[in-house]
């Protein structure tokens, strides 16, 4: 499977996801944001970080960069797109995913391992997880508080477009297990066609027992099919 990781000035999880993809046997290429052509890719990853120093709004400037037109074109023709953390913010700024990520409710940068529940395991991104499986994944963000209008929120629930929700170790989804104030504890969402996933947690940080755990591995093996 061929993957491309888009690199912006200020991206800082690009290498991590690159290492993770190669470890999982993806044929990966790193693509600088000023490129106007994308190599043929089955998966495009928008990595985490602080593209353009989070100027204006997180992801706003990166969302208008040259390569993004190509990403949008690829997305519309069915290419799989994964946005992690700042990548999720960028995807909402491009309009590929609806909604937005507001500043964390407690106004603090949160860096910790949290539990999330897999709500939909019937997608290209999540099929190797069990339904309602609880996984432990690192979050590291200042703007992860998912917000959208009521109509979209209902659609997300009704059409099974919520990938992950924050929960506690027992799987309880409530205010206590919500780290950032996200609407309905949402940690990751799909677009209508489920070929785009945006998520705040960092699966690329959870692929090795030695530094964390392997709870992120199944996301990559799901993609490999």
């Amino acid at each position: 499977m061929r993957s491309s990781v888009i690199v912006f000035p200020g991206s800082n999880c690009d290498r991590d996801i690159g290492v993770a993809l190669e470890k999982m046997q993806f044929k990966n290429q790193m693509i600088w944001h000023k490129e106007t052509r994308l190599p043929k890719s089955d998966l495009i990853v928008i990595p985490g970080g602080f593209s353009y120093g989070d100027y204006l709004r997180s992801g706003a400037i990166a969302g208008k960069s040259l390569i993004i037109d190509e990403v949008i074109r690829a997305a519309n023709s069915g290419c799989l797109i994964l946005g992690i953390c700042n990548g999720f913010q960028i995807l909402t700024e491009t309009g590929l995913l609806k909604g937005t990520l507001l500043r964390n409710k407690n106004l603090k940068f949160i860096n910790k391992d949290v539990q999330i529940k897999v709500l939909n395991n019937k997608t290209k991104f999540t099929n190797k997880y069990k339904k309602d499986q609880i996984i432990k994944i690192n979050i590291a963000h200042n703007e992860g508080n998912f917000f959208t209008d009521l109509l979209h929120l209902e659609k997300l629930s009704n059409e099974n477009l919520i990938a992950f929700k924050y929960c506690d170790e027992k799987g309880n989804i409530n205010e206590n297990s919500n780290p950032n104030g996200s609407l309905e504890n949402i940690a990751g969402i799909f677009n209508d066609n489920k070929n785009i996933l945006g998520m705040m947690p960092h699966p690329e940080r959870m692929i090795d027992e030695f530094i964390s755990n392997k709870d992120g591995v199944n996301l990559f093996t799901s993609l490999l099919g």
Binding site: L56, K64, E93, G99, T100, L102, F147, D149
Partner: peptide, 9 residues
């Protein structure tokens, strides 16, 4: 509309 404002919020 194009950049300065996020019309969602």
């Amino acid at each position: 509309k194009k950049l300065l404002v996020n019309l969602v919020i």
